[in-house]
Amino acid sequence: MELFLALTVGALFAAGLYCLMLHSVVRLALGLVLLGSASNLLLFTVNGLQRGFAPLVPEGQEALTRPFADPLPQAFILTAIVINFGLLALLLVLVHRAAQETGTDDTRALRTELKDSQ
């Protein structure tokens, strides 16, 4: 499974980076979401995968015994998902406001427009 996930992660990276290279700020935001997914899946894959066996200690027991999925990458990814969302929300609102002011979402045009309005 790691093989196929690794290929997927590479594809998602390529897709996200491609969006970043476009001149549209909306596409750029899209690219950031794709990159976020790509990174999260990378973290998920890198330490090896385990089908089932969520890291939950059964009720009444003191410790969890193998096999179980590694909880640490999951904690990281959970944090990353939420932070990604915070970033995206701010970016989207910023894009929205900039477009309201200037009537465009093209980074080249935005630059000249915002310079002029200063």
Partner: peptide, 26 residues
């Protein structure tokens, strides 16, 4: 949104760098 998002067409030469980086990541 007051305007339509920037029109764009997929371009292979723009995709070359991202595809290469994606391959390296994999």
């Amino acid at each position: 949104f007051p305007v339509q998002p920037h029109e764009h067409r997929f371009r292979w030469w723009t995709a070359a760098l991202p595809l290469a980086v994606g391959g390296l990541v994999t």
